[in-house]
Design a protein around this nucleic acid. Structure first.
Lengths: 183, 183
DNA sequence: CTAAAGTTTCAATAATTACTGAAACTTTAG
DNA sequence: CTAAAGTTTCAGTAATTATTGAAACTTTAG
């Protein structure tokens, strides 16, 4: 498995970005390679293409599977495991969002809920709690909203995204409509 | 500056989460402390409260300023710099989103644009480019959409979030309205 | 059942990133 | 202008995170 310069550029870049997207360099490279490779490939091919250790590949694959970003694939008369990306690019984005929400929001949300149950001991804590409530409400709002958006069909999501800030106008229309139906 | 247990719990947790949100532990702690403290505080007070070195505080404050998350504040007849958080919680979220977009999407988007200008050398690269285009379009869509959402007023954003997956219904309404006006 | 091929795990080590604290620099009261 | 107080920088070190590779385990052909 030799990568062409174009493919190598992308794979290496994706590796560097990986750490910012929540996985480490080699996991990012592995995923990039799987995205742009048409046929399923084996762990050994990945290790060879990226010049990384077999052990590291194995761990990376496990992580990608836990993110549900890749899928196992078997070839007839071959007991080796082959891998390929799972679902569309949209699915990928959804998975990454969800996984990150779990890591980045849920623990904080849960801690904030606990703290907000306590009774503030003094004025200082009173003010602190008020701020924490704001943070809590914001995080909860984002969490709920994003999980509801994920339930929307890809087509509707697409419409919504294409609409952009035009959403504002649609929201106005909604108000008018509701008013009319109440009259 | 002694922190009450409740405040300490929150500050320490925010520190741990900090690395997941794009800044390091101490920067996270510092920001948390500034969020829950009512009055502006000095760099020394921060260092003392968190038991971290003065140098580290100075670097962290610089980072928070570059994120536009905190503001300088001066007290009369005191040449020391005091700091306080900047804007509402919504503003904070916007800044964090924007900063992360810059770090996490823009570089990849720019690389993808470049690669897509190249002519594929063979069938393998042809397939690769097609995949890269999908990734590119997705990232571009998200980038544009999120920056347009940020231009929406906080009230509209709030309405939109409260609407949740109900957006779907509003989109349907939009279609009906357009149809009617075309007839 | 045996052994060869394939796979996984994990302790040791490398690479990266964060933090300290002392030194250099800046500001201002007197 | 001087010196004391305040602030910033950055080289060295600590802490964390990622990677290797050898050993243990698993599978299956013969």
């Amino acid at each position: 498995m030799k990568m062409t310069p174009m493919i190598e550029t992308f794979v290496m870049h994706f590796g560097e970005m990986g750490s910012r997207w929540g996985f480490n360099r080699t996991v990012g490279q592995m995923y990039a390679l799987l995205v742009i490779t048409e046929d399923p490939i084996s762990a050994n091919q990945i290790a060879e293409a990226l010049s990384i250790s077999r052990g590291n590949v194995s761990m990376g694959l496990k992580e990608l599977q836990s993110w549900q970003l890749i899928q196992l694939h078997h070839k007839p008369a071959d007991r080796k495991d082959y891998f390929q990306t799972n679902g569309s690019i949209w699915d990928m984005a959804n998975r990454v969002f969800e996984e990150r929400r779990k890591r980045e929001m849920d623990p904080t949300l849960s801690l904030l809920r606990d703290i907000l149950l306590d009774t503030p001991a003094n004025a200082e804590e009173q003010h602190a709690q008020q701020k924490l409530r704001e943070v809590h409400d914001l995080l909860e709002g984002i969490t709920k909203w994003s999980s509801e958006l994920q339930r929307l069909s890809p087509e509707k999501l697409d419409t919504l995204m294409k609409l952009g800030s035009g959403v504002g106008k649609v929201l106005d229309m909604k108000h008018k409509l509701l008013k009319r139906s109440n009259e």
